[in-house]
Design a binder for these strands. Sequence first.
DNA 1: AATCGGCACAACCGCAAGCCG
DNA 2: CCGGCTTGCGGTTGTGCCGAT
Length: 287
Amino acid sequence: MEDVKARRKLQSSEEDQMDVIRGPWTVEEDFKLINYIALHGEGRWNSLARCSGLKRTGKSCRLRWLNYLRPDIRRGNITLEEQLLILELHFRWGNRWSKIAQHLPGRTDNEIKNYWRTRVQKHAKQLKCDVNSKQFKDTMRYLWMPRLVERIQAASASVATTTDNGTAQMFLRQGVVGNEYTARATTSYTPENSSTTTVASSDSVSDLTNCYNNGFHVNNNPNPGYSFQASSQVDYYNCNNNNNHGDVGMDFQTNNYQPLLDGGDLSDNLLNAEDFLFLQQQFNFNM
DNA sequence: AATCGGCACAACCGCAAGCCG
DNA sequence: CCGGCTTGCGGTTGTGCCGAT
């Protein structure tokens, strides 16, 4: 252990001696890196750093390439579908960012990590609860994610009516992502059966991934006869704990909570003011 | 116009696992 | 098997931008 520390210290001082550059990359450095990788391929980052003439560490070169310069990097805002996928995958794997990133083509683990820290943790902070608490996880699962599904549906429906291509209508009828959450809701979805009947029993990850990859054009629904019902939406929020196990559930329905389908670009504001007010009351009550 | 605070994102750091001679 | 080196991952920090005051 001491050896390891000593070696790292030596490595660090060697880096200092060779005037390693840190901080933001310049355009010239980017060009150098891109050209070098175009000629020699990626990998062997330390030797790449030495041979390319870049005064950067191999680590720095690797990070710059993977998180920024790669040609298949997807730029722009995280879409609703991507948000849903991130939430779903984070439920399964926690902070395994690179694993989550594998299911979002073109997105980097760094980007997903940043999204989680800035957006998701912000909501937890606003609710004055821990992001890893059961309460917040329930909030995400039973309020946030269904709301995302609603918005994805709404967006798809909008596309269908404006383009008249029928694709989104098909999605709405047969519901790939919607199937996940609506099906749960219509069977009095509880935290207990959620882990056994849907997530664990089906490959929801690949379903969601396919769904994302194909822009919701592929019907992976194992139950083709399934159809959405407007009235079932309220069941999204019927998260009463019926298991008599003494856990604190979130009863949205008995509080006369009604989901508000607000319009506009709400990709970021996943929960509106009334949601927060209600949730804060829930949390304060339960704390 | 200047300042401040929050946010988003790029980059760095420490650690651990994997690989290879 | 061991030790050194490389790579990958998750956490953290730094910085620029932008809106509010």
